[in-house]
Design a protein around this nucleic acid. Sequence first.
DNA 1: TAGATTGTTAATCGATTAACAATC
DNA 2: TAGATTGTTAATCGATTAACAATC
Lengths: 218, 218
Amino acid sequence: MLVEEREISQAVIRRLPRYYRYLGELLENGVERISSNDLSKRMKVTASQIRQDLNNFGGFGQQGYGYNVKYLYTEIGKILGLEEDHNIVIIGAGNLGQALANYAAFEKRGFILKGIFDVNPRLNGVSIRGVPIRMMDELKDFVQNNNVEIAVLTIPKEKAIEVANMLVENGVRAIWNFAHTDLNLPDHIIVENVHLSESLMRLSYNISRYNDEHSGKK
Amino acid sequence: MLVEEREISQAVIRRLPRYYRYLGELLENGVERISSNDLSKRMKVTASQIRQDLNNFGGFGQQGYGYNVKYLYTEIGKILGLEEDHNIVIIGAGNLGQALANYAAFEKRGFILKGIFDVNPRLNGVSIRGVPIRMMDELKDFVQNNNVEIAVLTIPKEKAIEVANMLVENGVRAIWNFAHTDLNLPDHIIVENVHLSESLMRLSYNISRYNDEHSGKK
DNA sequence: TAGATTGTTAATCGATTAACAATC
DNA sequence: TAGATTGTTAATCGATTAACAATC
């Protein structure tokens, strides 16, 4: 029997969490059902796109009725893997690392913070939300012994590549990368980049473009 | 005379900062020139795409030679608006707000931190990199009197929409939005969203997908 | 049953890649 | 001049939108 693996495009995957967020809000507001048309107006996308996107994963709606909000919310949550638990560590307890460590919504989505690591001896033993900061030389052992699936990298780019390689060799499966560099890891390793400086440059570009257009410049 | 406004696609704009980063690294390494082909191998994109992207903005290369790294780096910097200064404020001095305030590379790219605001009276007057944290009730006056162009929103979503509207009414032109909500501002306002929870969900999705594929599940 | 709205196929649009003449 | 590599046009590919039959 041939198992047909439909490949879902990254464009679709990028939109899924946004659907999930809107459905979550509808749910909070007690809305029971919604049509692709109503949702499309709220989200400012086409109804056609919503239906196409959802039908990549199955038929969640009902003709003449629309979509049941609660059901669709749950199903998208499953698709996004939010019903599974993932052990994570944060590497780099600087401002950003601490900000992420304090991000309480982690646990709600199944991300369990197992450890925080830094090179700064002054942070040794300091706890964030009950999780003590450990020194980098303990990292390798820790990863091997705690079933760590995801590592969050909030360290300078010079160290990031080397640390990422070490993590992958010791079983880490995915990296949430905040370092200002690309990591070039094996294909089966999942990398999600958050390059804040690039985000800021896009903002900057769009301001400049607008200024040009409204000042007679070509 | 017809001023031809070529519309640059957001797909291209998303890639520009990455080109800029790679060229900056080449520059640091003393590389003088590079061909689209060499660059394509480093960046793992097609040479064709690089040439197409750059030619949206003009011919920066030379047949038979390639691109001068220094020149191209500078030109992309100009396109991205990094040679202009922008006054910015950060709203929300929690962990993430403080992390961004401490992000020193801001100034290097022309982003001048003029103020930080929060509701927490305990933070009143505390300084980050020489910039004192002010109370939210001073925000409106401050924005009017300090030529603030960009606001960074690191506050809870409940407050974010209301604050964003107030900022826009008082002259703010662009918002770097870290709040977990969409803002729905007028078209001429530039919004760059950084939805960390959505980024994490995409990571989660990709892990689950990989697990499914390697466990016999459909 | 009539009306509403999905699921899905077909048409369109846009982005990426390939190819090659121009030219340094 | 010969070789290399761009700038740019044409071909391909993929994603979005439109349309409508199926069906609740």
